[in-house]
Write a protein that binds this DNA or RNA. Structure first.
Lengths: 140, 140
DNA sequence: AACTACTTTATAATTATTCTAAAGTATGTG
DNA sequence: CACATACTTTAGAATAATTATAAAGTAGTT
């Protein structure tokens, strides 16, 4: 039974509104993801490793996947892909853009990019969002 | 030994300049990819299935992967990723953009999108390219 | 406190991709 | 233009990320 102290309320609320019961494992994941000053990017494997390092009783892989998926479906995480067949998740859910620099990802605030011209959506469709990836290379 | 008729020269040249000997399997793949009016998108699995359907002697999976990788490294194919952990390849290598509509990909000509403002590259880096993904949803 | 539906977990299964090593082939050399 | 050799093809094994399974555990309601 999760102790319902105020300190955890915000993290528990994210779980509940994602359709998840706030179990101990999930609350810890939610805190790990959202209890920080700056947003960040991660893969499920990275998340699992960094959380389980500190724990005697490990959280299982399936729980990480389940929790991340639910948080993503509820809109608390954004998913994106690089060219390496791995899903990345971003705790910055505001519309924004990315630099990709050899597997490293750097956020670009949405106000740093504006458009002069954008195409119409095909008929019957509308634009959900627009995301820009700026690929970098070394300057030599 | 590949018969070196003119009809295949262009496809063989792509292979050679990708560092590949023009074996029969590779020439067929090159023709399948580039001997068409319109560019297209594919996964290696899709490529393999559609080519092998018509063949009595199947081309192996490894040959598809090897050939596609070499063509991509040489710049004859562009790679991109959706959120499903699969690599997609595009025979349209000109700089362009995409609509993503529930796993379907539609090209957007690069002249359909222009920028009013773009960020500087971090120091020591320069911009290799800029790609825009416009995600679509149904209009209801 | 008891019941029931939801969770966790270890493990198996799946999918996309890469590796391996044996058998086959392109190509330069003589 | 036959030979030698390095590059290829292939089937199958290996790997990596992810999803499925089913038994044991727990949250939330009664």
């Amino acid at each position: 039974m999760q102790k319902m102290n105020n300190k955890n309320k915000i993290f528990i609320d994210k779980l509940r509104s994602s359709g998840l019961r706030p179990t101990n494992q999930r609350v810890e994941i939610s805190k790990f993801l959202f209890n920080r000053k700056k947003t960040f990017h991660f893969t499920v494997e990275e998340l699992k490793n960094s959380m389980n390092l500190k724990r005697s009783k490990k959280i299982s892989t399936a729980t990480f996947y389940n929790t991340v998926h639910a948080l993503k479906s509820a809109g608390y995480l954004k998913e994106f892909s690089l060219e390496n067949n791995t899903s990345y998740y971003d705790t910055n859910i505001s519309s924004h853009h990315h630099f990709f620099d050899n597997g490293k990802v750097i956020d670009i605030n949405s106000d740093k990019i504006t458009f002069r011209k954008l195409p119409e959506a095909p008929k019957g469709k509308k634009i959900k969002n627009v995301e820009v990836v700026i690929r970098l290379e070394n300057n030599n």
